[in-house]
Write a protein that binds this DNA or RNA. Sequence first.
RNA 1: GGGAGGUUUCCCGAGUGGCCAAAGGGGACAGACUGUAAAUCUGUUGUCUAUGACUUCGAUGGUUCGAAUCCAUCACCUCCCA
Length: 380
Amino acid sequence: MQVGTFELLNKSGEARRGTFQTAHGAVQTPVFMNVGTAGAIKGAVDAFDLQEVGCQVELSNTYHLHVRPGDQVVRQMGGLHKFMRWEGPMLTDSGGFQVFSLSELRKIKEEGVYFHSHVDGRKIFMGPEESMRIQSNLGSDIAMAFDECVENPATYDYVKASVDRTTRWLHRCKEELARLNAKEDTVNRQQLLFGINQGGTYDDLRIQHMQEIAEMDLPGYAIGGLAVGESHDVMYHILDTVLPHAPVHKPRYLMGVGTPSNIIEAVARGVDFFDCVMPTRNARHGHLFTWNGIINIQNAKYQTDDRPIEEGCGCPTCRSFSRAYLRHLLRAGEMLSQRLLVLHNLWFYNHLMERIRTEIEQDTFEAFRAQYSAVLAKRI
RNA sequence: GGGAGGUUUCCCGAGUGGCCAAAGGGGACAGACUGUAAAUCUGUUGUCUAUGACUUCGAUGGUUCGAAUCCAUCACCUCCCA
């Protein structure tokens, strides 16, 4: 199947089961992409571990890898796949989120964004062309458009001006990537570009923007600027509003989301791709996902609990280690705790997605959603 | 035997007359975290019949309107000289 093709296999309500083809293999959707921002999953987890916990797509970041070690270095080392030894599909985020998260350290202009490096303070310019060149040097399978992720709430006028600029930037991204993919010495000449829908919490801006970018016939479309300050209800409302205007035969990626419950709710609305730092970051902080809800392994009640994090879980951690031991490791500040806890959470997320795919195939997704959406968000 | 310094709330440690239930760490107990500036950040941490009261700064006694802080005696610890 041709790279960039999205095949819709089944539907269960609005939930979609599909396959997306990349230069490094097919992705079964809905999918959760495992976040390894700087070319490594935080918590001492490597690419081989990712395979073991069921990861399909690895996600890294343009800004971080540009700052360190430098995208030219990665290119010289044969691209990010080879560099980090991940052979599967890979997506790179464009640096657009850093326009939001490093708001203290940047200035936005029409040509692009001026950052002060969070590492050494030096000035960095990144515009659509720079972002595409960096992502091309990294050689990921999916490059994200360079956008401005606007925080919520923001004024209508600000969001409108920002979205218009993001659209102009998207045209520049598309042109630049086409130029780069045409070059013979490009690391991954089949790199695909996903556009990103913005518009804050304003229905008309969201719809108008989605319609504009849908016309560009890109291989995939992301919804950005959500889970950045608004309530879940508002986020779901935006999905309900925007997704009917997204192309049916292209994958939809909800950027940076979210909790297991958020994912189930978004799948129910027709989202295919997800990513989030939550399973990794929260694992490092002792916050673990199970099919019965969320546990905090630091709690005193686990001091002598000989059970695994979750009975019956097949992850490398649950196969061998008790809650009591994991609690001890975390509280003692042992690095091993991070690794073991992250492996569990990533396994959970990846297997949650596998379960979702099965439920859609069997057209039982609604019952699954009814049973688990709330349970998974519960703290136990 | 002589001299000097010390003993503070779970631990370390600040505090030398009222603004002290007592800084700051640590530990403990909880919480937050959504395209990762996050092995980070936040709250609580003497007791209670709880916008107040009571007990607590080695022990006992004293000075003072008022003492963790000043005085006396005792106990224990550390260092120096014999």
